[in-house]
């Protein structure tokens, strides 16, 4: 058991898989000499050489397509896309190829491809570098996507993703790389797509993922001081979603709040709301409520940028209103 940074956990996972299986390799911009924009591949070039830790030109669709081809031939590529914003250039490789080929070939071609990339609002990187596109990717059949919120999950889920025979996106977060957390390499990992109750609570369920998990946990502490016990469910995976854990939590609390950094319209929260109201209709004592990013390109101005994504006070207010039924649920 040790206390590590999120990027260090990913680095350890990469190292472990590269060491364990010689069909594993990684490609991407600056993954080699530079050691990765967020240090995830630090030290790996020296250890495994340039055939397995490969720098590429700025050409997302090409090197992601390279990953697809390598996977078709039985290798286990880990493609790093510097940020999710650049994945837009690789959509043909991701959506038209990786997600479709196993189905279109009737399973004859496996697709053990892992695509790693960070998303999210960091600090004043501008609208084009602050996107959260998980809702878009979540809606593509044939793709899996995990969203680790802690170093431990980052370690487990990256290793599990690399060993999976399906195409899978490991969505990281730019503000999580330098967060610390405990890592136990010997602990047994839960199933890759299983959600977790990060904090039990009696009065309402907060369903969230990625960086918003720590925000939800902080909020839960503040609410507990006022006598409101909020249960926090960390989804850990957006495709598929572990509905069982969500349902079980809502059947205990009868109230559900979804917190997402991505913008509200057509978002992850919309999908959860629609599905949960059907699965848990008779358990709901109030309308499901969302706290989400605003529906606008992220402002560059720091103060405005902070206002455009959920803050602790927003979650506190929504939770209180949900518990006291102070509003009819229109957010």
């Amino acid at each position: 058991m040790s206390n590590v940074l999120y990027w260090q956990a990913l680095n350890e996972a990469m190292d472990a898989e590269l060491a364990a299986d010689e069909t594993v390799f990684t490609v991407g911009e600056d993954v080699g000499l530079y050691g990765g924009t967020y240090r995830v591949t630090e030290g790996l070039l020296a250890k495994y050489g340039e055939w397995r830790v490969r720098d590429t030109p700025i050409s997302e669709n090409s090197f992601t397509g390279l990953g697809v081809g390598a996977a078709l031939l039985g290798l286990r590529p880990v493609v790093e896309i510097m940020t999710i914003n650049f994945a837009l250039l690789a959509m043909d490789a991701i959506v038209n190829m990786a997600a479709k080929i196993p189905f279109m070939s009737g399973g004859q071609f496996p697709m053990p491809l892992t695509i790693r990339m960070p998303g999210g609002v960091a600090r004043q990187l501008g609208a084009q570098h602050s996107q959260r596109l998980e809702a878009m990717l979540m809606g593509i059949p044939g793709l899996r996507m995990v969203v680790p919120a802690t170093p431990q999950d980052a370690y487990w889920q990256l290793r599990q993703a690399i060993r999976s025979d399906d195409p899978i996106i490991v969505l990281e977060h730019e503000l999580l790389y330098f967060r610390t957390g405990e890592l136990d390499e010997t602990a047994v990992a839960p199933p890759l797509h299983q959600a977790r109750v990060s904090r039990p609570g009696r009065d309402l369920t907060c369903i969230t993922y990625s960086r918003m998990v720590s925000l939800a946990l902080e909020t839960a502490e503040a609410l507990a001081a006022e006598g409101i016990e909020m249960e926090v469910v960390d989804l850990r995976s957006l495709a598929p979603i572990d509905w069982k854990t969500c349902e079980q939590s809502v059947s205990r609390t009868h109230r559900c709040l979804i917190v997402e950094e991505d913008n509200e319209c057509g978002g992850v929260g919309a999908e959860i709301t629609a599905t949960l109201q059907a699965r848990s209709f008779f358990q709901l004592d109030a309308p499901i409520r969302r706290v989400a990013g605003l529906d606008l390109p992220t402002p560059f101005n720091g103060a405005l940028e902070a206002q455009s994504i959920p803050q602790k006070k927003d979650v506190v207010q929504a939770a209180k209103e949900l518990v006291t039924n102070a509003t009819g649920g229109v957010s």
Binding site: D295, D314, S331
Partner: peptide, 10 residues
């Protein structure tokens, strides 16, 4: 007003 969508309450 937090992130309330600019929609009037009914």
């Amino acid at each position: 007003r937090g992130h309330a969508a600019p929609m009037p309450h009914s």
